[in-house]
């Protein structure tokens, strides 16, 4: 497990201290940690457990109960692929396979380079455009026909490479 940097640890401490004496503090703390760090690291569960008189395993139980919490850092770019009925029928699985190939991220995981996370979601309410995926908040409909999601992912990879080279 990667070590958290000092800044992240300080942030966790600060969040825990702020909510310690509230009612039902665990959820509040988890929300803030998720927002600040993009995921819930082990260190946060340990500190929250200590402050609330529970154990890390119990806090983990809460994390795993609510879909909005994740235990893995989210990628810099988030891709949602709809797995609702309409999209499924129109080839969402094929879409997922292609996104996996392009990004290196497995379903509900983050790619090893930390660039992408790939989440399978329920119906996005755009069934007319099935199959649908969302990249950083932008919808890509009829994805398998239009293929513009491929271009977008390729563009992101190019940009990030450039930024990396200049850094």
């Amino acid at each position: 497990m990667e070590k958290l940097n000092g800044e992240a640890l300080r942030k966790i401490d600060e969040i825990v201290a702020r909510h310690k004496d509230q009612a039902g503090p665990c959820i509040e703390m988890l929300h803030e940690v998720q927002n600040e760090l993009g995921y819930i690291p082990y260190e946060a569960m340990e500190k929250i457990a200590e402050a609330t008189g529970s154990s890390p395993a119990e806090v983990y139980g809460v994390v795993m109960f609510y879909a909005q919490f994740t235990t893995e850092p989210k990628g810099k770019h988030v891709i949602n692929v709809c797995l609702g009925t309409a999209c499924y029928v129109k080839g969402a699985q094929q879409l997922i396979d292609r996104v996996e190939k392009l990004t290196g991220a497995a379903v509900n995981k983050t790619s090893p380079d930390g660039l992408f996370s790939l989440d399978a979601t329920r119906c996005l309410g755009a069934c007319g455009l099935a199959p649908v995926c969302i990249i950083d908040g932008k919808y890509y409909g009829n994805a398998l026909v239009n293929n513009d999601f491929t271009n977008e992912i390729r563009r992101i990879v190019r940009e990030e490479k450039k930024a990396g080279a200049n850094a």
Partner: peptide, 25 residues
Amino acid sequence: CKKVQGIGVLGLMNRGFKTKVGPIY
């Protein structure tokens, strides 16, 4: 584990049909 040993190694995870008992992660 929690009350007798005061540790709390075990907990519930996931929900509904997928619920499981075990150590963290």
